[in-house]
Nucleic acid binder design. Structure first.
Lengths: 187, 187
DNA sequence: GCGAGCATGTAAGTCGTTACATGATTCT
DNA sequence: AGAATCATGTAACGACTTACATGCTCGC
């Protein structure tokens, strides 16, 4: 699929410029898809040419002009067709796990440091997702929210993101400790 | 990085042909990296040309000849340098999550079916990883194993894979139930 | 006879990353 | 004065997917 449908899904949150979308892909959309600003700036004109989104240039004072895009009817149809299409399984794909797999071939100190850094990242991410979830709930219970809210997609995916980062955090820590214990016992 | 270092790490398990590696990437390595056979067949000659692996053609009876590769000294060095190099965070990247995010724009029946199918996949995967873990332990406790085993990398990454698939399973089921409940309440 | 497994590749096309490039305004 | 934010793009390269291509053996 690629970025195309991820952009359409992100625009369900409301119209946005390329710059806005880049931020959205760094926060809420980051649960399930990543995209660089360059990718977005390249993709948006293509989506517009295909009629899936419509853009409007907005003049600003004291700031550069920007082009704001929103989902078109055709874009909604395309997204609906995508939602109903089959998917294939995904797996984790992570540099750091390759490094852990091969841990024995090198001094483990830098790897342990990298794991600790990642643990910090995962902790910040899971806290961020928790904040987003609380904001969506706005005081309601999850049970009620899932019954009555207009859109539950963003909530559901954000829960997956939070759990993923929590599991990352605990795995990073455990792995770092395990490797450290082995270092200690060697010396 | 790409597939390059994943292949070197996979060869730590012992020498293998392209065909063998493709299977290895489908089972144990699948915890953290995916590669198609085509990618491997293209990459192996490149790694050999770079001196990171060495290949030997093996004649077989009643079967096609094959080329078996193993890690060279240079390959080990390269892998060690990689293990000590910095990494950047990864996130989940999943079609199906994009679809859940956009669930409201389409009829949810096909999406629910897709989630249930995925749940089955996740369940099989997590059972497979559990088997691999049990095989590595070979009756020992995890605590002992992690202290005394020659290589702990494969165990550590496999644990992450198992947890990931377990969390997938429970999220797929919960998401399917939530969407189903909303279908029921609309009608 | 047919499908599954063994065994390896090429070619085309799509997708994604990184580096380069610009320029105003606001905050410290 | 320098960094961060707003705002958008191009070009080159590297990575990955999909389709095409071949052919033998073993078990059912």
């Amino acid at each position: 699929m690629s970025i195309r449908h991820a952009v359409l899904a992100a625009l369900l949150e409301g119209e946005a410029s390329g710059y806005d979308l880049a931020k959205r892909f760094d926060v809420s959309v980051a649960n399930f898809w990543h995209a660089s600003p360059q990718q977005l700036y390249a993709e948006l004109p293509r989506l517009e040419a295909a009629g899936l989104i419509s853009g409007q240039t907005v003049r600003q004072q004291g700031r550069p002009d920007k082009r704001v895009y929103r989902l078109s009817g055709q874009g909604s149809d395309e997204l609906a067709a995508f939602v109903s299409s089959p998917s294939r399984p995904t797996a984790i794909r992570d540099d750091l796990m390759v490094k852990v797999q091969a841990a024995e071939v090198a001094d483990s100190a830098p790897l342990i440091a990298a794991l600790e850094e990642r643990a910090g990242h995962a902790e910040r991410r899971s806290a961020l997702y928790q904040q987003l979830l609380d904001a969506m709930l706005a005081g309601r219970s999850e049970r009620d929210y899932l019954r009555v809210a207009d859109r539950v997609g963003p909530y559901l995916t954000c829960v997956r993101g939070r759990t993923f980062e929590q599991e990352n955090l605990s795995w990073y820590r455990w792995t770092a400790e395990t490797l450290q214990a082995r270092r200690d016992s060697v010396s």
